[in-house]
């Protein structure tokens, strides 16, 4: 066997071992490295009341309510499965905070199972849709896109 083939095999084996180690470490870290808990993860494994955690998920459509004091809002966060956690927050809502969209709340669970948030972050999803195409059917949107791009080509 030539020396360069030996080097190639050695390096490839070392790389496979290294990537395997990286993957195992990432897998072992999957709970610790997550930025927030989903509602189902929080329901399954509830943190101590008062412990600072982050809760993330969808703002349940129809659940957003403004309280009588004018600055407190309540809403529910839902996850991938049929789970929901009620959230209470007093403060300024981010611009992108809307029902049916993603949110990450920083705060703690109270004794009654309500999540009291100190801070809200809006989470954007992977979809990029121009404003005028929202809520249109595929066909309408295609027609509209054709119209708006006339003269660009």
């Amino acid at each position: 066997m030539k020396a360069k083939h030996q080097r190639l095999i050695l390096i490839v084996l070392a790389l496979i071992a290294l990537i395997g180690a990286g993957l195992l470490a990432s897998y072992a870290l999957r709970n610790q490295a997550s930025y927030f808990y989903l509602p189902e993860q929080m329901a399954e494994n509830p943190p101590e009341p008062g412990q600072a955690v982050r809760l993330g998920g969808m703002v349940e459509p129809g659940s957003l309510e403004k309280q009588a004091d004018g600055i407190t809002v309540t809403f529910a966060v839902t996850g991938r499965e049929n789970s929901r956690i009620p959230v209470r927050f007093a403060g300024i809502l981010p611009d992108l905070f809307v029902e049916g969209s993603g949110v990450v709340a920083e705060g703690r669970l109270d004794a009654g199972g309500t999540f009291v948030a100190d801070n809200l972050l809006a989470k954007h999803d992977e979809n990029y849709v121009p404003r005028e195409l929202e809520g249109m059917s595929e066909h309408q949107a295609a027609e509209m896109a054709k119209e708006t791009t006339v003269g660009l080509e």
């Binding site: 999957r30 989470k123 791009t149």
Partner: peptide, 27 residues
Amino acid sequence: NRSVVWWNSLHQPPSITMGKSAIDAVF
């Protein structure tokens, strides 16, 4: 590359995957 798939993250998941795009053609 996998960070947004493995772990819950504030950054959005990939928009452009093998042959599919969640980004409108205009963008």
